[in-house]
Amino acid sequence: MTEPNSPRRSGLRGFGHDGPSPWTDLDRPPLDATRLSRDLVVPGALWTSVEVVTETGSTNSDLAARAKEGAAEGAVLVAEVQNAGRGRLERQWQAPARSGLFFSMLLRPEAVPMERYGWLPILVGVSAASALGRVSELEVGLKWPNDLQVGERKLGGILTELSGGAVIAGLGVNVTLRETELPVPTATSLALAGAAVTDRDTLLRELLRSFAELYREWVAAAGDPQASGLLPAYAARCTTLGRQVRVLLPGDQELVGEAVAVDPDGRLVVRTPDGNRHPVAAGDVVHVRPEAG
């Protein structure tokens, strides 16, 4: 077993020769690291490296350490399994080997003012929902701020962190998890949702290409969410807007009302029954089902 943050590097088709064979579960073949690099690391592309490792603690932590050492923008690190994966609010993210896509991207948007870096998780969400929707032929939405959803079930999550002047953007997507493997009953996977395609190489290639396209438009607009088209694109996919919500705020506070907008700072605007509007920058959102009658 490798130590967390000390990834075991891939050999043929993304795996070394030690440990259990990655072909023991034929429904979950390993990623083709060589082909992914050949297709994505090309002249003029955002991506400068695509590395697949058998196992690590957290791809975000690994890339954060490299960022502090001055690693260039465009590095992508993919793990077939993470043993210390993290989600928002320091929640654990774990899944069986090769059952999903678990990867991080190292970004240095130097042309963007730092106060607009908060839009990056939303940009990752919009690009991921768009890419997954196209390939899987499913309706993929975004629960505020950036949980990927199919219906009311969570398909994936996003975590961004600052390190060494760079942004590390991590994404986890459930691809072939079975019902008995779901971490919570409210989760799902592409396979369980009836996706037309669950090939992880195809999905990862499309996810990275989609992100690169939107990221360059956002950087060219100096991170402006309106000029880049990011805010309207997010609003169109946000499953929280127009819903009755209960927002669990820091300090055990709670806000109940209708989610009516996302403001230019990416905050969710909740209108309470007294008509007042409250911008929410951080909190857990629960979609409240309307009462019968």
Rank of each mutant, 00 (worst) to 15 (best):
L249C: 10
L231R: 13
V76R: 08
L231N: 08
A191M: 10
V140W: 00
L12M: 08
K143R: 14
F102S: 08
R289V: 12
A65C: 01
R8W: 06
P290T: 01
S10I: 03
S136E: 07
E254R: 15
P30M: 14
N276E: 15
L171I: 09
P96R: 09
R28W: 02
G57K: 14
L106A: 14
E80P: 00
G151V: 04
S210D: 15
A33Q: 15
G257R: 12
A64E: 14
G157V: 04
G100A: 11
T180L: 06
A131Y: 01
T56Y: 04
G100R: 05
S189I: 01
R209S: 09
E206G: 00
V52Q: 08
R289M: 13
G19Q: 11
Q149W: 03
G275E: 13
H278D: 02
V50D: 04
T48I: 02
A71S: 12
L155G: 10
G257M: 09
L77N: 07
E258F: 07
G223N: 09
D39F: 07
L268K: 12
A169W: 02
T180N: 11
S61R: 12
G141N: 11
V219D: 06
P43M: 06
N146V: 09
V245N: 07
S61E: 12
A33P: 05
A261P: 03
E152N: 13
E181F: 01
L268F: 10
F15C: 11
P183T: 10
D263S: 10
E90W: 13
P113G: 11
W144Q: 11
R91D: 14
A129M: 07
T59N: 10
A169M: 02
R271E: 15
A212Q: 08
E3S: 12
L159K: 11
L177C: 06
A67D: 06
V112P: 12
E213M: 02
L142T: 13
A193N: 02
S130I: 00
G16Q: 04
A169T: 04
M114S: 14
P96Y: 04
G85C: 07
G19Y: 09
T239M: 14
V124M: 15
R216Q: 15
A196N: 00
Q92P: 00
V52P: 09
V81N: 02
P109Y: 10
G157S: 05
P20T: 04
W23Q: 04
A65Y: 02
S21R: 10
A195L: 07
M1E: 09
R246L: 10
S228P: 07
V150C: 14
A261T: 01
G170F: 03
V280L: 11
L214D: 13
T188G: 05
S104D: 13
